[in-house]
Design a protein around this nucleic acid. Structure first.
Length: 428
RNA sequence: GCGAUCGUAGCUCAGCUGGUUAGAGCAUCGGUUUGUGGUACCGAGGGUCGGGGGUUCAAGUCCCCUCGAUCGCCCCA
């Protein structure tokens, strides 16, 4: 390939030696059934969302970089090395959203949504993270997101978890179990963190290399280390329950009792922590062993400090996000869309007549298609391959008589139908 | 950022320890008289073997670099 510099001074390639364009790494282009799987997940989410009275919101794909940097935490991997950030033509630092929560909270403040508090909202769409792609992980990926902003009661957590639970049931996903923990209030969390730090520092030489690195950066993360050598040290680590303030313990009890009352199965996961800094109190994940390394299918928690970090008033809130691709891998085959009838015209005149009937059927809401390629045999095969219920065969002889042959593809029965009665005959 | 495996036709893949002119199925296109049920015959087009360098009389095959993919680590939904 010949490298050239084009008129804009950028590196270009000569047209004569053009190679087919490559997709951007970690992006997906989906056809038919693969795309339907994502749509099926979204449809189920929308259904449950309405059932629970969550209002639909749309928020921008891009935000000022500070929106994410100030909420997610400057030291997290997401902010420090995975964001798609760029300077726009006005010199402003812009970031493609790596998640939804921060943007929704920004809108809550800047769009005056505080007047609707407590606000139950949900959305879905693309998010972006510069990561190494692997199973269930992409650079442009899709999330479902649900939030309750301005409600500090444990019942808000319960309602949000009930939404998640019902979504998974709606999708027929049985294998995902709710792992639940509390991170307590800031006081609790600080005390627990200090105790963990002391504990792990005392055993630091026995820890894996990764965990030794985590010790200074985020000791909580050692708790869910995958390195076997860390496990005995993790097992003997102090548990958060010893540090919970009475208020924090009371809050967590409110959540668990509410879940039990709602009939939602959960498991206590005392070592479950969250990756992002803004979480307080409730933390949870729906986890499965069916997705390889990316076992978390839906996760979230309470983030009472986030809105203050954006310069707003103290505002309690809970939310979760779910990976649409990961959910899509766990659902059954989406039902195939098949036309009711495929028109098989046997000549140019029949094709014109076919277009007229096709248009009529579609206007009546009957899904229809026309096979206009190949010989008779290929056209009929097309009707079969498409899974149609009927083939409407239009030949010149019948055209003369103003008729066509309607063939029931399941029984093989065939009958003549008048052309002007076809829409009714099929619609029945 | 790190590791493992893998890149051969549009797609899925064969191609043994290096050895004539790189194959198959599907798909595409053209036929088998444009009138009746999925899978049938015949034929054609299509590959700088991801890219670059090296070893060799000889490289799809061996070595190095590079790009890409998959899976894992990390991180996270």
């Amino acid at each position: 390939m010949t490298k050239l510099f084009c008129q804009f001074g950028k590196l270009c390639f000569s047209a004569a030696a053009m190679t087919p364009v490559q997709p951007v790494r970690g992006t997906q282009s989906l056809l038919g059934e693969d795309a339907d799987r994502l749509a099926t997940v979204i449809a189920a989410f929308e259904k449950v969302r309405r059932l629970f009275g969550f209002r639909r919101v749309e928020v921008p794909t891009i935000e000022q970089t500070a929106v994410f940097a100030r909420t997610i935490g400057e030291t997290t991997d997401v902010v420090s090395k995975e964001m798609y950030s760029f300077e726009d033509r006005g010199g402003e630092s812009i970031t493609l959203r790596p998640e939804f929560t921060a943007g929704i909270c920004r809108a809550y403040l800047s769009e005056g949504w505080q007047q609707y508090a407590p606000l139950k909202v949900a959305t879905h769409g693309s998010a972006f993270r510069y990561e190494r792609p692997q199973k269930g992980r992409f650079r442009e990926f899709h999330q479902l997101d649900a939030e309750i902003i301005g409600a500090g009661e444990p019942q808000a957590d319960v309602e949000l978890l009930a939404l998640a639970d019902q979504l998974l049931k709606e999708l027929g996903i049985e294998g995902a179990i709710l792992q639940l923990n509390t991170l307590g209030d800031p006081e609790t969390r600080a005390a627990w963190r200090d105790a963990l730090y002391e504990h792990f520092r005392g055993h630091s030489s026995a820890l894996s290399e990764d965990s030794q690195a985590r010790l200074e950066r985020n000791p909580l993360r050692i708790l869910d280390s995958k390195a076997h050598q860390d496990w005995p040290i993790v097992d003997s680590a102090p548990v958060i329950d010893e540090f919970l303030t009475p208020e924090a313990a009371e809050f967590f009890r409110g959540v668990t009792e509410g879940l039990d009352a709602a009939g939602i199965r959960w498991e206590r996961a005392p070592r479950l922590v969250r990756g992002l800094d803004y979480y307080r109190h409730t933390a949870f994940e729906f986890v499965t062993d069916r997705l390889g390394a990316q076992g978390t299918v839906l996760a979230g928690g309470r983030y009472d400090g986030l809105i203050e970090a954006l310069g707003g008033p103290h505002t309690p809130a809970v939310g979760w996000a779910a990976g649409i691709e990961r959910l899509a891998m766990m659902i059954g085959e989406p039902s195939r869309e098949r036309p009711v009838v495929v028109i098989v015209p046997l000549g140019p005149r029949a094709e014109l007549q076919g277009q007229a009937i096709l248009a009529g059927l579609r206007r009546e809401g009957v899904s229809a298609d026309m096979a206009y390629r190949g010989n008779m045999k290929k056209r009929l095969s097309r009707a079969n391959d498409a899974g149609a219920s009927y083939a409407l065969i239009i030949g010149d002889d019948e055209l003369e008589r103003g008729e066509a042959q309607l063939k029931d593809l399941s029984s093989g029965e065939q009958r003549s139908v008048a052309l002007d009665l076809i829409v009714e005959a099929i619609g029945r």
